[in-house]
């Protein structure tokens, strides 16, 4: 399996900060893999994902996304990735469909038109198909985003981020603030997407049960990797008696204090 994410000796030191937030981190993610990056608050998860998604520069190290260098080929990298940010990134002044239409224009999927009725038939079909999967109706699409529930907004963000069929989907705490049913629905949908499209998933989350189905779990603390392997390996290596990833995670974090 070819690697779609390659990180080698990555270091990030913020301005005016004496210590690096990401300190000599190296890992690789294979094509179609489900990779989870876990760690306590301030461990460097969001910093790492920000660097991988080209929104933050690195201090040193090598990062390649789909074989492309993130410094020299950042625009090409952005075409290959989709991102669900930790904080919602929808425009509350626009309707649900207008947010999707805006994204389609930014990624040059379809020519921009000021009204939905003027958009190409292929666009309308794609929007209808994607939104029906997540349970959004035609009426929901024409509602302002601020009228949608938190769960619906998250699903809309996922629909939007998948419009350009990215090779890799970055999820930065995607279910933060959602109720349990919304979280389950969201994960059912993501699992379906991964199976049907072979999309690589890169996840950061505080809900460790979400990472149980990962192919690889990487645990980061104070900017350094303290564990890297499948969920089963992590459980076995660090806490043989423990049966959940959460308990193994807690043991790892406590042991590295």
């Amino acid at each position: 399996m070819a690697n779609v994410i390659e990180v080698s000796r990555l270091i990030k030191r913020y301005k005016n900060s004496p210590d690096p937030s990401v300190n000599n981190v190296s890992f690789a993610v294979g094509s179609g893999e489900f990779f989870s990056l876990l760690g306590p608050n301030g461990a460097g998860k969001t910093t790492t994902i920000s660097i991988l998604t080209t929104t933050l520069s690195k201090t040193s190290g090598l990062v390649k996304i789909a074989g492309l260098d993130i410094d020299r080929q950042s625009s090409a990298v952005r075409q290959k990735i989709g991102i669900i940010f930790q904080n919602p990134s929808l425009d509350p002044n626009l309707t649900a469909e207008e947010n999707v239409r805006f994204h389609a224009a930014l990624y040059d999927l379809y020519p921009y038109r000021p009204f939905y009725s003027l958009m190409p038939t292929d666009y309308k079909n794609q929007v209808t198909h994607l939104t029906s999967i997540i349970g959004l109706t035609a009426s929901d699409l024409s509602k302002p985003v601020k009228a949608l529930s938190g769960g619906m907004k998250r699903k809309l963000e996922i629909v939007r981020s998948l419009m350009h069929q990215p090779q890799i989907l970055f999820l930065d705490e995607p279910t933060s603030g959602l109720d349990p049913l919304s979280r389950k629905n969201l994960w059912d949908y993501l699992t379906q997407i991964r199976k049907s499209n072979g999309t690589t998933i890169f996840l950061t989350t505080h809900y460790l049960e979400e990472a149980e189905n990962s192919d690889t779990v990487c645990i980061i603390k104070s900017g350094k990797i303290v564990a890297l392997g499948s969920p089963g390996q992590n459980k076995k290596n660090f806490a043989g008696r423990h049966t959940t990833l959460e308990s193994a995670y807690l043991k790892i974090i406590q042991d590295t204090n």
Partner: peptide, 11 residues
């Protein structure tokens, strides 16, 4: 955070 959508687009 809407600007994130702008700044991660391939433009």
């Amino acid at each position: 955070d809407f600007a994130q959508e702008l700044f991660v687009a391939p433009i």
